[in-house]
């Protein structure tokens, strides 16, 4: 399988590790500087991956969830010393408002990171990674993925027949629609299970179950994969260990803390920034590469 030059073309295991560290960081950091930096980097990553299309599609959901947390957290937590106002006799504190905002930001980060992960680690790559660890599970999921579009198409065919009979029509009552929907399912289930026995014959006749399966695709670790891997391991352990030792341990309560400006905090921040810059830089480099080639032609 051919691999691109950018972050997408990285060995999937390396990319997976990157996202693992990224996700843990998104969840770990409550420091406003770190979270803000993460957000910026994630936006850049999304823009470099698909021009931000996926991000825009999810925007509404992210906003609603973040708003919900931002609003509800201060209402239920009265920790903190600086009281802003009272809501139904409960004090609403500045600290818990800030806390809500920080956690809303961290939620958005987590969701954006997952969305980017889905873009890079496609189902193919995911299953390739899973295959050596859990071959049978990965195989079952692959087959499931093959059936989903097939069954969706069949459902539509069945519903066409139901519409032609006048069993489904616009504006029908909810209960009737639920009944008809189940009729659709009955046809689908009986038909598809019956047919999957034919699929079994086709699998067996091509040697399924005759021994240990091999894998046609083998991703080789190339030089850039090793380089990235080292970078991720180095920076990742720095980030996680630093965090566990209390660097950038931003405490909101009882009173907002000033930002951490110690030397170790700056080093920590620097490492994190380099880590975050890996994918956008790789993708940017690729784009630049093509632009140069085109300009030379």
């Amino acid at each position: 399988m051919s691999r691109g030059l950018g972050f997408n073309g990285l060995h999937p295991a390396v990319a997976m590790l990157y996202f693992l560290v990224l996700l843990v960081s998104c969840m770990m950091f409550t420091d406003p500087v770190m979270s803000g930096l993460t957000l910026l980097a994630l936006v850049a990553l999304h823009l470099s991956l698909d021009g931000g299309r996926t991000m825009r599609r999810g925007l509404k959901l992210y906003a609603v969830l973040a708003l919900f947390i931002f609003i509800t957290n201060p209402l239920f937590s009265s920790r903190g010393a600086t009281i802003l106002f009272y809501f139904r006799d409960r004090p609403v504190t500045q600290e818990s408002v800030v806390y809500g905002a920080l956690f809303a930001l961290s939620l958005v980060n987590v969701l954006l990171a997952f969305a980017a992960y889905s873009l890079v680690i496609t189902s193919d790559k995911f299953l390739l990674l899973a295959a050596p660890i859990a071959p049978q599970t990965a195989f079952a999921i692959t087959v499931t993925l093959r059936f989903i579009p097939l069954l969706t198409r069949r459902l539509k065919q069945i519903m066409t027949v139901q519409r032609a009979f006048g069993y489904i029509y616009p504006g029908m009552r909810k209960k009737l629609l639920m009944r008809e929907g189940m009729e659709t399912m009955h046809t689908l289930v009986a038909w598809s299970l019956e047919e999957s026995m034919q699929s079994a014959a086709s699998m067996r006749s091509r040697g399924y179950g005759s021994g240990k399966r091999s894998s046609a695709v083998r991703y080789r670790m190339e030089a850039r994969d090793w380089a990235c891997l080292w970078l991720i391991v180095l920076l990742g352990s720095q980030i996680v260990i630093g965090r566990l030792y209390g660097v950038h341990d931003y405490e909101v309560f009882p009173r907002l803390q000033p930002l951490d400006v110690s030397l170790s905090a700056w080093v920590h921040l620097g490492c994190y920034a380099v880590f975050l810059a890996i994918p956008p830089v790789m993708n940017g480099k690729e784009r630049l590469h093509w632009r140069i080639i085109r300009s030379r032609m």
Partner: peptide, 19 residues
């Protein structure tokens, strides 16, 4: 060690639930 039929059944039921 699953027979082809059994594996397909799990996958097919999973797909049916998903759609």
């Amino acid at each position: 060690r699953l027979r082809a039929e059994e594996l397909l059944l799990v996958a097919m039921l999973g797909a049916i639930a998903a759609v």
